[in-house]
Amino acid sequence: MPAVGKENEGYVPEILVFSTNNVSDPGIDLAGGAHLPYSPAVKVISVPCSSGIRPQWVLYAIEKGFDGVFVAADGTDCAYRQDCVARTGKIVGEAQELLANHGHAPQRLKMAAICSVCAEQFTGYMKKFAEELQKLGPSRKGSL
């Protein structure tokens, strides 16, 4: 498979999405089901709850070659915990600090609540995030 040269004019930011099994994943599935296109450079890893995402995973993804990480959070729809928004927010804050400490722009990590029917919101966020990452340029691979 040919590697896509990142330094090219047509640089397409690679985005890793952390999604949740019961809330944002159905929303992202619905985007596909409704044939709403978004960049194939978006890849999803699903976890049960966005409060379980480790800040180290975000750093790992950026250091290994993703240009941005998007946390598709449960928001207030979380079936696990009422303080999910606050907890996920805290993790995102910690992860951004971790990125900054390793010389990466903290804007490479974004979070938004994606509900189980938020298909259009999801594709909208992907478009906007890709534009922001385009301005930042490709991430620098790290030493992890």
Binding site: M1, L30, G33, P37, A41, K43
Partner: peptide, 22 residues
């Protein structure tokens, strides 16, 4: 998830969809 999160979402770009699927 190759259908909802790949083929159905990237119907206009077979090459990129195939690479993503891999």
């Amino acid at each position: 998830n190759l259908r909802e999160q790949c083929s159905w979402a990237h119907r206009n770009n077979r090459r990129a969809a195939t690479e993503k699927a891999v």
